[in-house]
Nucleic acid binder design. Structure first.
Length: 803
DNA sequence: AGCACGCCGACT
DNA sequence: GTCGGCGTGCTC
């Protein structure tokens, strides 16, 4: 058993297989599956994952593993299996699947260096110059100096220099210095006696360690004894004391800052919901639950007490929360129940912080992880439950490689660990609800809000009538009156504006010219910070024009997110109102999101005006009015899920009103208030919406009746891309069944990105058991063009965005 | 992906 | 002759 099977860190289809390496004697018993190793690969050295250990190989003349990068495996056996499964089902490279399961800092970095090994005198002058006396230096220095590679090559042949490849994978552990006595107490006494009378501080320090002969954090020691490093240094130099660095966790959340909460008494509904979950936990049985509970019905308490049960049984829990809802408020609810038994993983943490939280899991220091999508890969070995809150959120699907859906991964892991999965939502996706109705998932319903609160009354306003009545503002008369009422009573209002299309673009008012990216078919976005225009898809940037590039008029200006405009007009109508605006502009800064919410929570404002980001998780008791300014802005997008998204958003937003004792009220403005998604959302009638929408989906042959798969082809040459997609469609028509529908080929909605033309086709099918196999063959068919002709082919199973 | 190797046209 | 540009093939 001295051969390791390794997946190498070379993301291309040609190396998408294992490579065998000999385990050298000094690493025998050290190398283990799931470890990262450094291996020679051609002339260089690269990182690889050991996915198996055997005693035979088809290859003779194996190279040996260079070194290990981990002392304990970073991937468990189960995660290695999961990686293979993700690669198989989403058709991504095996290495990409493995990398996706680990924190960013564990990704290897590579350095190429030139080492001088021969006589310096014999070095070519130009290299001599670059070396500047150094024994080795980065390879890039040579390239930057404009020295041709042949010069390097020659020097290598002559034996004066050598190329060395380095793999850097040292994750940055945060270390802080501790001071400890380096000699026994008796010796400390002697040292103390030997110190001169003038060395007051040194005597003080020594006497401290005579009294407490254990290690102490350097900072604390110096503070306590009111001294500085200067007096510590001679003691360390003499060898009386020693400085040791100890690893610490970067702690984004101070543990003791959370007041502990006790489990609340469950309502009847909550009890009914939690009992089957508990049963499944104790019986160690995999089962997927859909916890369908109206906003404010206390889903979180059900999660918390389910987790409690899991912890008591000595097992572990993963809680997924949408990125946008992963606010300190959410985290606090888990931290205050389970304290330091919780690790938190989300994008707002620095890479180092994420790694530290991940390591708490790896070292079995916590039993609970709360995090966004990628937290589903937490390396627990004894999972007792996986909870996915706000199951309908689209952020659970990763949009680039690997294109996995956290829900699918959760169910896969649940099967492996024989544990339940809980999908929670007030507005489940139709796919999920349909499965619950079919009995694939177990449906648990909670229809009442806690503390007897009723759902706020919703008033639908027809903005067409407002217009007829001569009101041309963004605010209906009713909404405006109600805002004023709240202000008079000292209560608060949340105003919600759906963003449509792209945030801030630049348009000429004279000729309608819109500044677009020269490399992509998309409008440029205005960045106020440096007064420049930027492309969101490539890194293109240009200065904000002062006159229109097309007609030279000076009426060119940028159009804000809408929230800005509304803020201005609202301020005009209500000069005394204190308004907080939350959108991409005001929350770009780190921590701004939280700061604004705290401000609003402290009642330092009357109105909170914002986009999507305020739809979730806000829980302010003093908010008694919620206004939706343009409910139909999502509705007319060319997306078969637009009705569903509208329903979800309206329900979500309405749930923000009247969370506490005060009754809430909701005003929904739209130009089509009679649309079923708006009407049924205002009546909180999920069931009717579901039935109606299912009919629409059936008619349109959309999910959940049909599955979708999107195939996109891109290439710098448009004709070439079109030619390929046409052939792809022909191929698919031959390979797939009669009933399967292929739409297209068509240009993608974003027809050009980074100077690449994009064409797509959509596959709609009911039953296509061999689809993955067919798609694999499709990849093989174009392997050469992908490798050598700059062709890109992407396949997205169950796409969320049709781009 | 990188890198070597080989073939080609284009320069000092 | 040597420099750089690309196409091709390989990495245990």
């Amino acid at each position: 058993m001295d051969i390791a099977r390794v997946i190498v860190d070379v993301p291309t289809s040609q190396t998408n297989r294992t490579f065998d390496y000999k385990i050298p004697p000094h690493l025998e018993g050290v190398v283990d599956t799931g470890m990262r190793v450094i291996v020679p690969f051609g002339p260089r050295k690269i990182m690889g994952f050991v996915i198996g250990i055997t005693d035979e190989s088809k290859h003779d003349r194996l190279k040996a593993i260079g070194d290990v990068m981990d002392l304990t495996p970073v991937l468990t056996g189960e995660l290695l299996e999961l990686g293979r499964w993700i690669a198989d089902t989403t058709l991504c490279l095996h290495i990409s699947a493995l990398q996706a399961m680990l924190p960013q800092v564990l990704k290897a970095k590579y350095e190429k260096e030139i080492h001088i090994i021969g006589d310096r005198e014999q070095l070519p002058d130009r290299i001599q110059l670059v070396s500047n006396g150094r024994g080795y230096f980065p390879f890039d220095d040579v390239t930057e100096a404009g020295i041709p590679y042949s010069v390097v090559q020659k020097a290598m042949k002559e034996g004066t220099i050598e190329l060395r490849y380095k793999v850097k994978g040292k994750e940055t552990l945060k270390k802080i210095p501790y001071i400890a006595p380096a000699v026994p107490v008796d010796t400390l006494y002697e040292e103390y006696e030997g110190l001169s009378k003038q060395a007051k501080k040194q005597r003080l320090i020594t006497s401290y360690f005579i009294e407490y002969p254990t290690e102490i954090e350097e900072k604390k020691l110096l503070e306590e004894l009111n001294t500085t490093k200067a007096s510590l240094k001679p003691l360390i130099d003499k060898g009386t004391l020693s400085r040791v660095y100890k690893e610490v966790y970067r702690s984004p959340y101070e543990e003791d800052a959370f007041e502990r909460t006790e489990p609340l008494t469950l309502t009847e509904e909550q009890k009914d919901a939690i009992t089957p979950i508990w049963r499944s936990v104790t019986e160690k049985r995999h089962e997927t639950f859909l916890l369908h509970g109206v906003t404010g019905s206390g889903k979180t308490e059900v999660y918390l007490q389910s987790i409690q049960q899991v912890i008591e049984e000595g097992r572990e829990a993963i809680v997924l929360v949408p990125e946008i809802a992963l606010t300190p408020q959410t985290v606090e609810r888990f931290k205050s129940r389970f304290g330091s038994n919780v690790a938190v993983l989300h994008s707002a943490l620095s890479k180092g912080e994420k790694f530290d939280e991940w390591r708490k899991v790896q070292r079995k220091e916590v039993q609970v992880v709360v995090g966004a999508r990628s937290a589903i890969f937490a390396p627990f070995q004894n999972l007792g439950i996986i909870i996915i809150d706000e199951e309908h959120e689209t952020s659970y699907k990763q949009e680039d490689h690997p294109r996995y859906h956290a829900r699918d991964v959760a169910i896969y892991r649940g099967e492996q660990h024989d544990c339940p999965i809980v999908l929670g939502s007030a507005t489940p996706t139709l796919e999920t609800y349909a499965r619950a109705k079919k009995g694939v998932y177990t449906l648990l319903s909670m229809t009442k809000r806690m503390n007897e609160a009723s759902m706020p009354e919703v008033e639908r306003i027809d903005m067409r009538e407002e217009l007829h009545a001569g009101n041309r503002s963004m605010f209906s008369r009713s909404l405006f009156d109600k805002i004023q009422e709240r202000m008079a009573k000292g209560e608060q209002t949340v105003l919600f504006l759906n963003r449509r299309g792209y945030s801030t673009f630049v348009m000429c008012r004279d000729c309608g010219h819109v500044s677009e990216c020269p490399h992509c078919d998309i409008a440029l976005t205005y960045h106020r910070k440096n007064d420049r225009l930027k492309c969101h898809y490539c890194s293109y940037e240009e200065a904000m024009p002062t006159v229109c590039p097309s007609c030279e008029s000076d009426t060119i200006r940028y159009f804000g997110t809408g929230t800005q405009k509304i803020e201005e007009s609202l301020q005009q109508l209500l000069p005394e109102a204190r308004i907080i605006r939350m959108d991409v502009d005001t929350t770009r800064q780190k921590g701004a999101h939280e700061r604004l919410l705290t401000k609003f929570g402290n009642k330092e404002a009357d109105i909170l005006l914002g986009t999507q980001m305020i739809a979730k998780g806000l829980d302010f008791g003093n908010v008694t009015l919620v206004g939706v300014l343009a409910a139909d802005s999502l509705l007319h997008l060319p997306d078969f899920r637009s009705s569903e998204k509208t329903f979800q958003l309206l329900t979500q937003v309405s749930g923000r009103a009247g969370r506490d004792k005060l009754p809430g009220e909701v005003v929904v403005q739209s130009y089509t208030p009679e649309h079923y998604s708006i009407e049924m959302a205002s009546q909180y009638d999920y069931e009717s919406f579901y039935l109606k929408e299912m009919k629409m989906r059936k008619l349109g042959q959309y999910p959940p009746y049909y599955f979708l798969t999107l195939v996109t082809v891109s290439h710098p040459n448009q004709l070439y891309a079109m030619d390929v997609i046409r052939k792809v469609v022909t191929f698919l028509q031959e390979q797939l069944s009669e009933e399967t529908v292929i739409l297209g080929p068509t240009p993608s909605p974003l027809a050009r990105i980074k100077d690449r033309y994009r064409h797509q086709c959509m596959i709609k099918y009911r039953n296509e058991p061999n689809l993955t196999k067919v798609m694999k063959r499709l990849f093989q068919l174009y392997e050469d063009e992908i490798q050598n002709k700059d062709l890109q082919l992407t396949i997205d199973f169950q796409p969320y965005h049709m781009m």
